[in-house]
């Protein structure tokens, strides 16, 4: 099978997509230079001969493949974890549920769910030309102004949920995060209440973290939240309720009120370091 794979050189998710593309057939890896222009890039991809077009399940990969699907009027399966013939397994609900679905017709259009496949060598990449068709493209990039630890890349994230109780209640969460050199996270309940900015939200509609340790304080463990926390290697839950769903995804738990437990952990850290 002739497989066209849209990659962004140096992108880890593209390397994961290439692995899946190779399992389907002979891969031709392609990319573009110049300002990102999804509709124009998709038009160039759609014009290539291919029986399958694969990309990473990244913001750009999903976007470009959706444009290809629209241009060719073909179905597109986003965030696929496995493919056998015309049956794909793909993520729903940010990975909290999967579906098996039949992808009808040709070419098959799919993206590969992030961090579900090992990375492959991308190998040679061909530069495709995309004609500027006047469709929206990136005009400029505004660099980030904040200097704190990024939630996405932090080694430790200390998160607070409804149990924190107020915006002020996050002082003890911030203190523990600072002691561990980590970032503060929170659940959707917290951002909806206005206690923390949306940029702090861990979840399906917030940031997906990849920390070595996630400390989830006063967080029940709704699927919306777990979809963003699943990438953490270890989860420690601090919760008053031993039946809370977060305990079914956590590695460690302390049963108790976070308002007592979290300051005690901070104090103990200071004591052993003194």
């Amino acid at each position: 099978m002739n497989v066209l794979c849209f990659v962004e050189p140096g992108d880890e998710l593209s390397a994961q997509a290439v692995g899946v593309a190779r399992s389907l057939g002979d891969v031709r890896a392609v990319t573009f230079d110049g300002a990102y222009q999804p509709a124009a890039w998709a038009k160039a991809l759609a014009a290539q001969p291919a029986e399958a077009i694969v990309a990473a399940g990244s913001d750009r990969g999903n976007e470009v493949l959706a444009h290809v699907g629209a241009i060719l009027d073909r179905p597109f399966a986003a965030n696929v974890t496995a493919i056998a013939g015309d049956v794909v397994t793909r993520q729903r609900w940010g990975g909290s549920l999967v579906e098996e679905a039949r992808l009808h017709g040709s070419p098959q259009l799919l993206t590969v769910a992030p961090h579900t496949q090992p990375a492959a060598e991308i190998g040679d990449v061909e530069m495709l030309a995309a004609e500027d068709d006047g469709s929206p493209r990136v005009l400029e990039r505004i660099e980030e102004s904040s200097t704190g630890v990024s939630l996405r890349e932090a080694k430790v994230v200390v998160g607070g949920g409804r149990g924190v109780g107020s915006a002020e209640g996050f002082a003890i969460i911030e203190e523990l995060a600072a002691l561990l050199g980590g970032a503060v996270g929170c659940s959707r309940v917290v951002t909806s209440a206005g206690w923390r900015p949306h940029t702090d939200q861990v979840g399906q509609t917030g940031t997906k973290i990849s920390a070595d340790l996630y400390v989830a304080c006063g967080i029940s463990g709704a699927t919306q939240h777990v979809a963003g926390a699943r990438g953490a290697k270890r989860i420690l839950a601090v919760n008053t309720d031993p039946e809370a769903p977060i305990l079914a995804v956590a590695d460690y738990a302390v049963i108790g009120d976070l308002h007592e437990v979290v300051p005690a952990i901070s104090a103990e850290l200071r004591r052993v370091r003194a």
Binding site: P75, F76, A77, V87, T89, R92, G95, S96, L97, V98, E99, E100, A101, R102, L103, H104, R230, L236, A237, P242, L247, A248, V249, A250, D251, Y252, A253, V254, I255, G256, D257, E260, V261, A264
Partner: peptide, 22 residues
Amino acid sequence: LEKLRLIVPEGQGKQAEILGDG
């Protein structure tokens, strides 16, 4: 894109090690 069936992925139902109370 024809849905055939849904599956709840494994990984739910982990048993957390309880480190203590309070």
